[in-house]
Simulated scan of single mutants.
Amino acid sequence: MIVHSSEAEEEDRAPLQVASPQSAKRARNVTRGFLSAVAAHTGAETDAVLLVVSELVTNAVRHAGGVTGFRLVAGPGTVTVSVEDSSATAPRPQRSKSGEPGGFGWHLVQELSADVRVSIGPRGKTVSALLPLSH
Score class of each variant (00 low, 15 high):
5 S>C: 13
36 S>V: 05
59 N>L: 08
10 E>Q: 13
3 V>P: 07
113 S>Y: 02
48 A>D: 06
3 V>N: 15
101 P>K: 14
118 V>R: 10
116 V>D: 01
96 S>V: 07
33 G>T: 09
83 V>M: 09
8 A>M: 05
97 K>Y: 07
109 V>M: 08
122 P>Q: 13
126 T>V: 15
85 D>T: 00
74 A>P: 13
124 G>M: 08
120 I>T: 11
52 V>D: 01
36 S>Q: 11
89 T>L: 14
113 S>D: 03
85 D>R: 00
34 F>S: 02
64 A>L: 01
48 A>V: 01
18 V>M: 04
82 S>P: 08
87 S>G: 11
98 S>W: 12
135 H>F: 11
26 R>S: 15
121 G>W: 04
112 L>G: 12
34 F>K: 01
49 V>D: 03
88 A>R: 13
126 T>F: 02
130 L>W: 07
124 G>T: 07
100 E>I: 10
50 L>K: 04
7 E>G: 03
116 V>F: 01
47 D>C: 02
34 F>V: 08
105 G>V: 02
88 A>Y: 00
22 Q>P: 09
97 K>W: 12
118 V>F: 10
18 V>Y: 02
106 W>I: 06
127 V>S: 10
118 V>K: 08
22 Q>R: 04
103 G>A: 04
42 T>P: 00
17 Q>Y: 00
25 K>A: 15
96 S>R: 11
33 G>F: 05
56 L>I: 03
116 V>A: 03
127 V>Y: 09
32 R>I: 14
131 L>W: 05
102 G>D: 02
114 A>N: 05
81 V>A: 03
104 F>V: 13
72 L>H: 01
93 P>W: 04
40 A>Q: 09
24 A>L: 06
2 I>K: 11
118 V>N: 07
33 G>Q: 11
86 S>K: 12
108 L>S: 14
92 R>V: 09
79 V>Q: 04
69 G>W: 06
7 E>M: 14
51 L>V: 12
114 A>S: 15
100 E>D: 12
60 A>H: 01
71 R>L: 13
27 A>G: 07
123 R>V: 14
123 R>D: 15
44 A>M: 06
28 R>F: 06
83 V>Y: 08
15 P>W: 03
118 V>L: 08
5 S>P: 14
70 F>S: 08
26 R>C: 01
121 G>K: 08
98 S>Y: 11
10 E>K: 10
135 H>G: 15
44 A>T: 09
102 G>N: 04
25 K>N: 12
17 Q>A: 14
109 V>F: 09
130 L>G: 00
70 F>N: 02
45 E>A: 12
122 P>C: 08
90 A>F: 06
83 V>C: 11
23 S>C: 06
77 G>P: 14
72 L>I: 07
75 G>C: 09
103 G>M: 05
33 G>D: 10
74 A>N: 05
51 L>W: 07
84 E>T: 12
52 V>S: 00
18 V>Q: 09
115 D>R: 13
123 R>F: 14
42 T>I: 00
